[in-house]
């Protein structure tokens, strides 16, 4: 498997993929029981005329095209356009659609970080995540540890992510459901007055929209 190294970003280093994860040779190992089930289910759905292979390939492309960059564009616009920000906080689904992002039937709610309040999102019951805007959730979001502890000791969880919030900052944790998903609107970093919308978007990380991180400093 060819490894395509990207060195333009501090978050990517040698031996890691462009999304900052270690490569693993999933397609090279022995065929597993569950892989056989996936092939069988897919073939049966096609043979019985419920799906055609092109639909499956297209859906994978659609999902691959969704990334935190979409959310970052929404956040950067909210930072420079007060009217858009008001629309985002009123109805994040509609505001995202306005920017051309197809977020399907997802009911998306944006919660704003301020000097006094920090928001964190979790799904304690499963893995609900604003996937139509941000792409698939990181693995840690789906772990027992994050799901269990985020609602009980969010400050301790945030410290594990390198975020040590002052006691004066209130922490609000939002538990997602399949029908209601959240994204965090992080606070715009200090010293970014002269930056373009595109430059601002490059500061917005995935974790800053989950609440486990802050935007990068310019």
């Amino acid at each position: 498997m060819p490894h395509d190294h990207h060195d333009h970003d501090d978050y990517h280093h040698e031996g890691m993929s462009s999304s900052g994860h270690p490569y693993r040779a999933d397609n090279d190992g022995p065929l597993t029981y569950w892989q056989r089930m996936e092939i069988a289910v897919r073939e049966l759905l096609v043979e019985k005329s419920h799906l055609i292979p092109a639909q499956i390939a297209t859906q994978i492309e659609v999902m691959d095209a969704r990334s935190p960059a979409n959310g970052a564009a929404v956040v950067a616009r909210a930072w420079i356009d007060p009217d858009f920000k008001a629309r985002l906080l009123a109805d994040a689904s509609a505001a995202s659609r306005e920017m051309g992002f197809d977020i399907g039937p997802l009911n998306l709610i944006a919660v704003e970080n301020t000097a006094d309040a920090h928001n964190l999102i979790v799904c304690t019951l499963c893995s609900c995540y604003p996937r139509n805007l941000l792409g698939l959730p990181p693995d840690w979001y789906k772990t027992r540890e994050y799901r269990s502890r985020a609602v009980r000791e969010p400050r301790a969880v945030l410290r594990e992510f390198g975020l040590d919030l002052a006691e004066s900052v209130a922490v609000r944790v939002h538990d997602s459901t399949a029908d209601m998903r959240y994204m965090v609107l992080p606070a715009r970093p200090e010293g970014t007055e002269g930056l373009s919308q595109e430059q601002l978007a490059s500061l917005v990380t995935r974790d800053s929209m989950i609440g486990t991180g802050l935007p990068r400093q310019p």
Binding site: G20, P22, D26, W140, T143, E145, R152
Partner: peptide
Amino acid sequence: HDMGGQAAGPVPMEGHDFALWEKR
């Protein structure tokens, strides 16, 4: 599956890129 508020250890930070069979 109702895990909210239970005791648990440190959040494991390792992740992986999804393989084709997972994306399918």
